[in-house]
């Protein structure tokens, strides 16, 4: 039983992290909110002042915002689609009895540990390059003209790179969930004459759906912040073709020095991320009680 003294000691032990995290979250976020209502451009130091919702108005009516919003949805949706379907298939495959299972597992998981700038540059130069890339070589080998991935389909190419990085994560979590499935249940269903297909639909899918939801939510949080992959491959271009919301805010704040406009964009990004976060938190919270 915890005494009064130990309760006080516990509070003392918890407070440093609470205070630090509070400062880390509240102060900068408050400043962003404050800037978002100001006219504040680092290139025009004299002209500052309260402008109400003007920054939001400019940001939300800028055609670049809609392009960026669509690009963000495409990137996040595309990566989720590839990683969930691919991860499910890979998890089912890795769950089979195979020779050298441990080594295959290591090969599949490896991309997750490659830093984003490396994986983006490796794909950009060694695979997507229309002259010396491997894809160009394969295309030429079969008599097709080489395709300039990053110029003609920049967003799709970045989606593929990011999907390659996150496929291991989805696979690993779905595999973990699959392995916690009660094998007796499956055997019983098999004895009762259930086909492989109906065993998959009625036993595995319901069991995996929870893990898949977790994958979707966590990946969404991380994918909304995709940055390095865009910076080193296309710089958001050509034009705005591969600019996401995160990248747009970066361009506006650190390249155009428009602090007010960038801050408004940052707040919009925070609101969007929070919508996803609420669902994720609810799932994790439920789990904490059991």
């Amino acid at each position: 039983m915890s005494t009064h003294a130990s309760r006080a000691a516990a509070r003392l032990m918890i407070s440093p992290s609470v205070i630090l995290l509070f400062l880390w979250m509240a102060v900068p976020l408050g400043m962003t909110l404050w800037f978002s209502f100001q006219r504040y451009n680092l290139l025009m130091p004299g002209q500052t002042g309260f402008v109400g919702f003007q920054n939001y108005e400019y940001f939300l009516t800028d055609p670049a915002f809609f392009t960026a919003l669509w690009n963000t949805l495409f990137l996040v949706g595309g990566v989720l689609l590839i990683t969930i379907i691919g991860g499910m298939l890979l998890a089912l495959l890795l769950d089979q009895a195979i020779f050298g299972q441990g080594i295959v597992r290591v090969l599949v998981i490896a991309p997750f540990f490659v830093m984003p700038t490396v994986s983006a540059l490796v794909w950009k130069n060694f695979f997507f390059n229309p002259v010396s890339g491997i894809f160009a070589y394969i295309a030429n080998f079969f008599g097709f003209p080489a395709y300039d991935f990053l110029a003609q389909a920049p967003l799709l190419s970045i989606t593929l790179i990011v999907a390659w990085q996150w496929l291991p994560f989805a696979t690993l979590i779905l595999l973990t969930a699959l392995q916690s499935l009660d094998s007796e249940q499956l055997e019983a269903a098999e004895m009762d004459g259930a086909s492989i297909f109906s065993r998959f639909i009625y036993i595995m899918v319901p069991h995996l759906s929870r893990a898949a939801t977790v994958v979707i939510l966590i990946q969404t949080i991380f994918l909304l912040s995709t940055f390095a992959e865009i910076l080193v491959t296309t710089n958001g271009g050509p034009g705005n073709a591969s600019t996401t919301l995160t990248y747009l805010v970066y361009v506006q704040s650190l390249l155009q020095f428009d602090v007010g406009g960038g801050a408004a964009g940052g707040i919009v990004a925070v609101i969007l991320a929070n919508i996803v976060a609420i669902f994720l938190m609810r799932m994790i919270g439920k789990n904490l009680e059991t």
């Binding site: 995290l21 995160t246 970066y250 994790i284």
Partner: peptide, 29 residues
């Protein structure tokens, strides 16, 4: 030494992780 508020503190800490970095890029910079 879990107290009544422990779960809330944990969840709140986690919520700070959900904040996208661009939201605080300018002030931190």
């Amino acid at each position: 030494v879990p107290g009544k508020g422990t779960k809330n503190v944990l969840m709140w800490m986690l919520s700070t992780k959900m904040m996208p970095a661009v939201g605080v890029l300018i002030p931190i910079y």
